[in-house]
């Protein structure tokens, strides 16, 4: 029987963007969305996990779902080039990515219900922008499904999902009955690079685009959890003392002495 997999993936600003190039639009308390978009790193690992499941099970269908507005198509189509079968974009001005996950959770849960008969939902363990690490958990709660977090290996056998979850001192193997949600961590391994065949195949696939109305979501009925009061560049609370000496070695010796004077060592 085909395993129906949904991967939730998010378009974010490249977290490797140098600090100096990072801008905040103070007027609208948001970060301009067009700063070098990429797919959230952990979400690429979730896509990798889905494609590995497809390979090992021999029969799985992978749909990638993303919520937002203003998608960069060449970026968000990368999962198709990696081997996903379908792409659904929940594209609506009301879905602008913010710090409040309420709308995103509701939209994803509604889309998964609309796709129907989904067995496994995979997502990255957290996104590199708002770093909330709660959308996948919220989706699991909204759907009433169990969730295993921070996975490094995901297998499905006989309607049971078996997940190796990363712990600081090893890992825990857990099992749950399908349908279930799993968040994936970097310990899973490097996501594959799309090959030429994949890239050509991805070109032919057009994403399905759903608005809030298409998934039957009444955003006005959702009560928001947060109001963003301010978004600023962090003030460095640290006054840096640069240690200099006659040469580099002398500076090294003086650094040790300074740390000793300050009782840091």
């Amino acid at each position: 029987m085909t395993i129906k997999i949904v991967v939730m993936a998010k378009q974010v600003i490249d977290p490797e963007t140098p600090t100096s190039a990072f801008r905040i639009d103070a007027n609208i308390a948001s970060v301009p969305a067009n700063q070098s978009p990429v797919i959230n790193g952990f979400d690429e690992q979730a896509i990798e996990a889905a494609i590995r499941l497809k390979e090992t099970s021999g029969d799985a269908h992978v749909t990638v779902v993303s919520v937002g507005s203003g998608f960069a198509l060449d970026v968000i189509k990368k999962p198709l080039a990696m081997g996903a079968d379908e792409l659904v974009l929940l594209d609506d001005p009301a879905f602008s990515s913010g710090i409040d996950p309420t709308v995103t959770i509701a939209a994803l849960a509604a889309a998964i219900a609309k796709i129907g008969d989904v067995d496994v939902v995979l997502a990255g363990r957290q996104a590199s922008d708002w770093d909330n690490a709660q959308v996948p958990i919220g989706v699991a709660e909204a759907l009433g499904w169990p969730i295993a977090t921070v996975a490094k290996k995901v297998d499905v056998h006989d309607r049971t999902i078996r997940v190796e979850c990363v712990l600081p001192d090893g890992h825990e193997v857990v099992e749950a009955a399908l349908p279930a949600v799993v968040t994936v961590s970097n310990e899973l391994g490097t996501p594959r690079y799309p090959n030429m065949r994949g890239i050509m195949a991805a070109r032919r696939v057009q994403p399905t685009v759903w608005s809030a109305q298409d998934i039957g979501l009444d955003i006005a009925a959702l009560s928001t959890a947060f109001e963003l009061i301010s978004l600023d560049k962090p003030q460095s609370a640290v006054e840096t003392e640069m240690i200099t000496g006659d040469d580099d070695a002398d500076a090294g010796r003086k650094l040790a002495q300074r740390l000793r004077d300050e009782r840091i060592i």
Partner: peptide
């Protein structure tokens, strides 16, 4: 902190 420490948000 948000955006990997590139910004700080205050929310109510």
């Amino acid at each position: 902190p948000v955006y990997g420490g590139n910004a700080v948000a205050t929310i109510a």
